[in-house]
Nucleic acid binder design. Sequence first.
DNA 1: ATACGGATGCTTGTATACAAGTACTTCGCG
DNA 2: CGCGAAGTACTTGTATACAAGCATCCGTAT
Lengths: 236, 236
Amino acid sequence: MAQTNGRTNRRDIYLKLRHLVLTLELAPGAALSENELAASLGVSRTPVRESLILLAQEGLVQVFPKIGSFVSRVDPAQVADAQFLREAVELASLDDLPAVLDPAVVGELRANLDRQRRSDLGLEEFFDLDEAFHQGLMRLSGHGNVWTTVAAAKGHLDRARRLGLHENESPAVFVTQHREIFDAIMGGNVPLARTAMRTHLRAVFDDIERIRAHSPELFAADASTVPVRRNIVVWE
Amino acid sequence: MAQTNGRTNRRDIYLKLRHLVLTLELAPGAALSENELAASLGVSRTPVRESLILLAQEGLVQVFPKIGSFVSRVDPAQVADAQFLREAVELASLDDLPAVLDPAVVGELRANLDRQRRSDLGLEEFFDLDEAFHQGLMRLSGHGNVWTTVAAAKGHLDRARRLGLHENESPAVFVTQHREIFDAIMGGNVPLARTAMRTHLRAVFDDIERIRAHSPELFAADASTVPVRRNIVVWE
DNA sequence: ATACGGATGCTTGTATACAAGTACTTCGCG
DNA sequence: CGCGAAGTACTTGTATACAAGCATCCGTAT
């Protein structure tokens, strides 16, 4: 999307940093330094800086000129916005399902669901499968590329979900809901699919306030939070 | 969104270039040069280049490493994607309208519609008012910020609309449709508002094939179009 | 006349140097 | 001991230099 052709350091670093932010390996609120990142990644500031600019446009990073760059704290307002967006898009996608479904995509979805049901499913595996599952549903109605836009907009929502599942037990309930959505689609019951989809998406969303009470420091305050530069060591 | 604070050359240039692309003053397919843009804007390559990277992520510009940068040709697939996205979001927003509407936003919308009805309405004025009108509708249901995401994704759609209105007579029919949507909302008739909104959005969309037949060189081919670098003048 | 090949000037990617500004530290003074 | 002010090290923004590669042009040979 961003780059049409060719592998560049910028693209690699952008994807790597984005993954680190979305998986919470780079914690919300963490201070980033173009120089430090460049040194640790073995490149110059240029590709790192350009990656941070892209992440800033996605809202995953905040850049304060002459002050510093920081991983964005999870903003409940942006979580709610992403929730509304994805719900609107995914429900509308269900209304656009064709009479006969693409058997290749259906096969992918079935295989995806099978892997979701494995007993040794790890959390990161689940998130990958979840992402592919929802994109697959969009592809069924020919709107697979719209998922790219939704995915780019739901960074805050994804991080909130990870916070919830980290302290939660297992994603088993979500796997069941995925199955219900899929079965409703295969049965040609669009209203049921819509209901199941809405229930599924809201189940994810409703945990957020509980998580916020548990880890308030990872969330943005009501007013725009002022970031704190990490301490500067003068000697040595 | 992209930048939290402070005015930088990059932000100014990014907004200026984005405006030039969306208004078709930079034609689809036009070759861009970081060096030329930097010289004509009186800055170095750095802010220009960083702006182009942002525009590339939005899909408005294509950057081919070691070859050149080009204003994206209007991609019918991306136009359709944006159409689906905005329709899904704006219709869902109507379903979320609160019982009592914010009088401040209602006043804005009314003033906006009055200006749309002026007889000397210019095309660029109309587009500005149209943008503000649709964002205002989203704000009525508390989803004003989601419009930012939609706006960022609909660059190809906006350019297609401008092509249509350039060769069309006047936006009068769209002004009427705006009025119908607004009246339905004020009357509390959500189903009517949904119908009017859908009609309105699709009226915009349905012109595209006609425009494409008229100006095919501004549209992307089915396969990924290979850009052509402009001629190089050696002597002189 | 035509085909082939090297030279040339453009392109973006990356690295680096300098500029402007912020916040912390630390030293000096009351 | 407390407080203030200057120093200092860090931050990002911008400009510039160099690297690598592609496309075109032009000359040459057939």
